[in-house]
Design a protein around this nucleic acid. Structure first.
Length: 642
RNA sequence: GCGCUCGUAGCUCAAUGGAUAGAGCGUUUGACUACGAAUCAAAAGGUUGGGGGUUCGAAUCCCUCCGGGCGCGCCA
């Protein structure tokens, strides 16, 4: 079932089509700043005025002539402010509409979307920058799911890169450990968190160490032991640690893809054929790039190397091959095996492999998405633009696949935060508003450490408020609050603004924070529970609702909320079309603010007038239903109490 | 050098080219004998970095200057 504004758009286009050419995208519904202007506002007359070369109010009046008396739900359609086309709902239309559609869901689109996120180098623990990636990626996937898409979540594992070789060298030759000894290391990812900066420093200073590392890298590529075994062991162990941390935040994956398998199974062969057939890739005529296969990067009118003169494939080439597989542009496929089982519900994650593990007859349907979303920070924009440009002409003209770089800015640290963690800063860095996170330098906040601090603080707050509560129950609540705080913090900022991380802000539980949202919903649940305990109904009585019984003050607040609540689907759609998930967070926050305001003014349980009580209960139920949907999109858990 | 991006209240940030630029934190003041105070109410706080332009309308688009950040390899 389509939601309200979607139906309105369809009908407007239909009614106006003989007189005006109106695109769907030109119809934007907003809520007017003043109630007397109406309930819903559009700027259609302004948009058409430009095309028709007429005054907005002339166009507006023509539109009104065409559409008046054609809508049952409106009592008035009028022009205001020189060209705003404003609609006013009939008395009680909206309240009854929302009451009838509390649990409505978007219809299935039948479209499969592939979202790749997290994709952390498997050589150390995750840090806060990775948390932003995973929180955005998971929220993106949930938002798409909310709008009726089928989702596949992939996590790409760069197991052939130099970063893994760095720590393999560190363990084998710097620390002189054997594979057996390495296997005995407890919390390997965290161990490597400290080893990685240590060896990175050595590579910068000591040529011999660097040469040793390069040899290790080569041996890994050639599958020579013990380097190869150690590298595999590390990559998988660290990956499991990343999966564990993200699972704490409710972030999960369907498939892990190893770069080594993309290479081993020669996915590039198929993408090469495709690119050459379509003339996208060709031998360079540039003497400096003699013997290289290149593509033309239109934006800068330069050639980018895909195959080096020695026949090896560049990073861009590998990424193009993987991306082509993701959108299903060739038949070649990975082998798969089960890699990890989530302890809570036994759900499996699969991993790619280059040798057969697939039991005969067991079908796999990974890859082949309608659209592919790559959640990667803005520093990869250059590369992602190239991939997008290459991909466009390779998919059939009648069925263009979409490749979307879901870009966001990095998480940095405030100088104060860096100093608090005990690092020395240069005078120059101290003056900066933020310092870039660097796993290589060790200047970073480990995801586990941040989560621990959040849990510790929320546990303290929970015990303060509920001293009677059992330790286990308190801890479970504290975890929910910590997760809510973190996930909200990671998506509330615009994606193209740098988060200057500071513990003070990240640990805030008041105001514009996750716990504020949670508190609103926990209290709603508490009200409904108390109603039930008192033997009253916590569900809505059937029958027509009449909001005219409310006095003016209450009616105004009540009606504003109804209008805002009617925009949920629109807000989620808008966030996706703008690639700006913070809109979902901001919208949810404003709904909570409105409800908290309402709650303080007007009692629900204690109200004696049954008509008032029923209306307030309806509002509470609608807010609850909408908040639950929004929370699940953002991955914010709902604690029992707090 | 070229490309991308940011500059909004003391601080951290919102604002689909729209109607009077909004929140939180902090400051000052008030509200728990109440459906939960992780809450609510109120006050103070703004030349949206400067200048020009486009538009019925600009924080938003264009130009320019100033000040930050990031990216641009036969690395990954």
């Amino acid at each position: 079932m389509k939601y309200l504004q979607e139906e309105l758009k369809d009908k407007l286009i239909e009614l106006l089509k003989t007189d005006f050419k109106l695109e769907r995208e030109e119809i934007l519904f907003t809520i007017p700043p003043k109630r007397e202007f109406g309930d819903l506002s559009t700027t259609i007359p302004f948009a058409l005025a430009k095309k028709e070369k007429q005054k907005p109010f002339v166009i507006g009046n023509r539109i009104i002539e065409l559409i008046k008396d054609r809508f049952d739900m409106f009592s008035e359609i009028k022009l205001a402010g020189g060209g705003f086309l404003n609609f006013t709902f009939k008395e009680n239309f909206l309240v009854n509409y929302l009451a009838a559609n509390i649990h409505r869901k978007a219809p299935d689109t039948g479209l499969k979307m592939v979202v790749e996120h997290t994709s952390i180098n498997p050589n150390k623990s995750a840090h806060i920058g990775h948390l932003r990636n995973a929180c955005l990626g998971d929220t993106l996937a949930n938002a798409l799911r909310f709008l009726g898409c089928e989702l596949e979540i992939q996590n790409y594992l760069d197991d052939t890169g130099i970063q893994v070789a760095d720590v393999v060298w560190g363990l084998l030759y710097h620390e002189g450990k054997s594979l057996e000894e390495i296997k005995k290391i407890d919390q390997l990812a965290a161990y490597l968190w400290y080893l990685y900066p240590e060896v990175s420093k050595l590579f910068a200073e000591d040529e011999k160490a660097k040469t040793g590392r390069d040899e290790v890298h080569k041996k890994i590529e050639e599958k020579i032991n013990p380097e190869y075994q150690v590298s595999n062991y590390i990559a998988e162990e660290v990956l499991k640690d990343h999966i564990r941390v993200m699972n704490i935040l409710g972030i999960r994956y369907d498939l892990l893809v190893r770069e080594s398998d993309v290479i081993e199974l020669d996915f590039f062969k198929d993408s090469r054929t495709l690119m050459e057939t379509k003339g996208v890739m060709y031998p360079s005529q540039d003497p400096e790039k003699k013997g290289c296969m290149v593509i033309k990067y239109e934006k800068e009118n330069i050639e980018k190397i895909i195959v080096r003169s020695n026949g090896t494939i560049t990073y861009i080439g590998k990424d193009i091959a993987y991306t082509l597989w993701k959108v299903g542009l060739f038949d070649r496929d990975f082998y798969y095996r089960k890699f990890y089982t989530y302890p809570e519900d036994a759900k499996e994650i699969y991993i790619s492999d280059y040798t057969p593990h697939t039991p005969p007859g067991e079908p796999y349907h990974f890859g082949g998405g309608e659209s592919v979303f790559n959640v990667i920070d803005v520093r990869q924009s250059y590369l992602q633009n190239i991939i997008a440009q290459v991909l466009a002409p390779l998919s059939p003209a009648d069925h263009r696949k979409k490749f979307i770089h879901f870009s966001y800015e990095m998480v940095a640290l405030t100088p104060r935060c860096v100093e608090e963690m005990g690092f020395e800063l240069s005078e120059e860095d101290k003056k900066k508003s933020y310092v870039e996170v660097s796993g290589r330098k060790g200047i970073a906040v480990k995801a586990d450490d941040l989560i621990d601090k959040l849990v510790e603080k929320s546990l303290y707050e929970v015990k303060l408020r509920h001293p009677e509560i059992a330790e286990d129950a308190a801890k479970a609540i504290a975890r929910d609050i910590a997760v809510g705080a973190l996930r909200y913090f990671m998506i509330k900022f615009n994606s193209n603004s740098v988060i200057a991380f500071d513990f003070k802000d990240a640990l805030a539980f008041e105001g514009d924070t996750g716990p504020y949202l949670q508190y609103t919903l926990v209290r709603i649940n508490s009200i409904l529970r108390k109603l039930k305990e008192a033997g009253e109904s916590d569900a809505l009585e059937p029958g027509e609702l009449d909001s005219t019984v409310l006095d003016k003050k209450e009616y105004d607040i009540f009606y504003d909320m109804l209008l805002d609540l009617s925009l949920v689907e629109l807000q989620v759609e808008l966030a996706l079309s703008q690639q700006e998930l913070s809109g979902i967070a901001n919208y949810t926050y404003s709904l909570c603010q409105e409800f908290n305001h309402f709650y303080h003014l007007f009692p629900i349980k204690a109200e004696k007038d049954i008509r008032l009580k029923n209306l307030r209960l309806l509002l509470t139920l609608v807010v609850k239903a909408k908040l639950e949907r929004l929370f699940s999109i953002m991955g914010i858990p709902i604690p029992e109490k707090m």
